[in-house]
Simulated scan of single mutants.
Amino acid sequence: MLEEQALVVDKDSQGVWVETCRQSACQSCASKSSCGHSLLGKMSRGQTQRMLVKTHLDLEVGDQVMLGLSESAFLKGSALVYLLPLIAMIIMAIVGEQLFGADSWQSLALAASGLLIGFLFVRSYSKQHQLDPNYQPVVLRKLVVPNASVQKIPLSTL
């Protein structure tokens, strides 16, 4: 189960609205100075994503929660988004090469159309499955945040 911390920002009859802050693991990576993903992470730092999450817990605005998403849903979604358009592009590029030759603009146009078809399929699939509970995050638990206003009294003064 993949976990992410979130903040409850609103409640309604269908569940709670939570916000998560985009994070990346780039700070602990040795290749962060030469990686494109690190650059994207720096550009999106501080951006939040808001989503509706169904839950059976009694939560209030301001509560911090731990969200969870199954690894299989994450892997399926990642494969769909990243691999399918590339595979469609490669197949169409091979078809274009066989029909028109490797140096023709028609081959390039077929490859681009394969990529576009792949993206359109991903968009259609995601719209059809946006309410599928297998692809939805769930609230795993409410996080207990220590109260910062309570002062600690050293034992030596008692």
Score class of each variant (00 low, 15 high):
residue 5 Q to M: 09
residue 6 A to K: 07
residue 9 V to G: 03
residue 14 Q to Y: 00
residue 16 V to Q: 03
residue 16 V to K: 03
residue 19 E to F: 01
residue 21 C to D: 11
residue 26 C to A: 12
residue 29 C to I: 07
residue 30 A to M: 13
residue 32 K to V: 00
residue 35 C to N: 00
residue 37 H to V: 01
residue 39 L to P: 00
residue 42 K to H: 10
residue 43 M to C: 05
residue 48 T to M: 12
residue 49 Q to Y: 09
residue 50 R to G: 07
residue 50 R to V: 06
residue 59 L to R: 05
residue 60 E to Q: 12
residue 61 V to D: 03
residue 62 G to Q: 09
residue 62 G to S: 06
residue 65 V to C: 13
residue 65 V to K: 08
residue 68 G to M: 11
residue 70 S to K: 07
residue 72 S to M: 06
residue 77 G to S: 09
residue 81 V to Y: 02
residue 84 L to E: 04
residue 84 L to G: 07
residue 86 L to K: 02
residue 87 I to G: 02
residue 87 I to W: 01
residue 89 M to L: 15
residue 91 I to K: 03
residue 92 M to S: 10
residue 93 A to V: 05
residue 94 I to Q: 10
residue 95 V to T: 04
residue 95 V to Y: 05
residue 95 V to I: 14
residue 99 L to S: 07
residue 104 S to C: 04
residue 105 W to M: 13
residue 106 Q to N: 01
residue 109 A to M: 10
residue 110 L to D: 00
residue 110 L to M: 11
residue 111 A to C: 06
residue 112 A to K: 08
residue 112 A to D: 03
residue 113 S to L: 15
residue 114 G to I: 04
residue 114 G to F: 11
residue 114 G to P: 14
residue 117 I to C: 15
residue 121 F to A: 14
residue 122 V to F: 09
residue 122 V to T: 15
residue 122 V to S: 11
residue 124 S to Q: 09
residue 128 Q to H: 06
residue 130 Q to R: 15
residue 131 L to R: 10
residue 132 D to E: 08
residue 135 Y to V: 10
residue 136 Q to E: 02
residue 140 L to K: 14
residue 145 V to N: 00
residue 148 A to V: 11
residue 149 S to F: 02
residue 149 S to C: 05
residue 155 L to D: 04
residue 155 L to Y: 05
residue 156 S to G: 00
